[in-house]
Simulated assay, not measured.
Amino acid sequence: MKSKILILFLGLMAIISNAQMVIGSTNVSQSAILKLDSNNKALRVPSLSVTDNIDATNPITSPATGVMFYNTNSNTANDIMKGITYWGSDSKYHHQATAASTDDIIATANIPLLIFSAAVGQKATVPTGSAGGGSATTLTLTPTEIIFDKYAGWNNSTSQYKVPSTGIYMFEFITEMSNIGNNGGTTVQEIFKGTTSLVSAFGRDNAINNRMYTTVISTQNMTLSDLMTFKYLYTANNYRIESGTINIYKYQ
């Protein structure tokens, strides 16, 4: 028994003398002073609350450079974010940037955050324009046309965008249309919330290149789960979208 204790003691002294400590195994890493080995557990650092990035007394008194913990407080106006935090050589706390904290900063600064973007490609020809009694066409998108959809709000089966949360949004709907007959006319584009038209805009033709350019931009107060539809119409027959864009921004 004594020999086993002696062997254990000598082994521990050998590890200590090499300035290394391993917890969870006997696999020493030569470059590590401390190594944690586990297949199903992890290191947990203390959870503390920073209220002032230059406070050297709270939550830690006289913090050493490099001291690290998880900050539980969030105050974007004062550059305080939840997440891994450390005390730097400039005598202030620094917070790990995350996607959530970046979104919080953008929202606090009232900077519009892009949450949906689509590059609209060429669409099918619409045979009858409004002058002939035709109705507006609902814009459809293919999966490859959707560049970015942060909240997976676009429904391909209904060709509608579902608002992910209550707040202020900006909608941008831009198209370039053509007409087979190149016989002039006026375009109309509308953005609907449900069955209600929120905003519309008109465009005119350019006879030189037979193109009609139309832009609709509108900022609206929206409610969670509002359904947005984008529609277009042209006075002359046999028209189609050649290209376009849809961008949706969220302010807060």
Score class of each variant (00 low, 15 high):
residue 236 A to E: 01
residue 205 D to F: 05
residue 235 T to P: 03
residue 225 S to Q: 13
residue 212 M to I: 13
residue 236 A to N: 07
residue 226 D to I: 07
residue 226 D to E: 12
residue 229 T to N: 10
residue 202 F to Y: 12
residue 229 T to F: 09
residue 209 N to S: 10
residue 217 I to Y: 10
residue 205 D to Q: 07
residue 231 K to R: 15
residue 237 N to C: 04
residue 214 T to D: 06
residue 207 A to T: 12
residue 219 T to L: 07
residue 239 Y to Q: 01
residue 233 L to M: 14
residue 230 F to H: 04
residue 207 A to N: 05
residue 216 V to S: 08
residue 212 M to N: 07
residue 235 T to K: 05
residue 231 K to N: 12
residue 222 M to N: 04
residue 226 D to V: 08
residue 206 N to F: 07
residue 209 N to T: 07
residue 202 F to W: 06
residue 224 L to F: 14
residue 229 T to A: 15
residue 238 N to P: 01
residue 212 M to C: 11
residue 202 F to K: 14
residue 237 N to E: 02
residue 206 N to P: 07
residue 227 L to V: 13
residue 239 Y to P: 04
residue 222 M to E: 08
residue 203 G to T: 01
residue 232 Y to E: 03
residue 225 S to R: 09
residue 224 L to M: 13
residue 203 G to Q: 03
residue 240 R to H: 08
residue 220 Q to K: 09
residue 210 N to I: 02
residue 210 N to A: 07
residue 218 S to G: 12
residue 233 L to E: 12
residue 207 A to F: 09
residue 233 L to A: 13
residue 201 A to R: 06
residue 235 T to N: 03
residue 226 D to H: 12
residue 240 R to Y: 06
residue 226 D to Y: 09
residue 204 R to P: 01
residue 210 N to F: 05
residue 218 S to E: 08
residue 225 S to F: 11
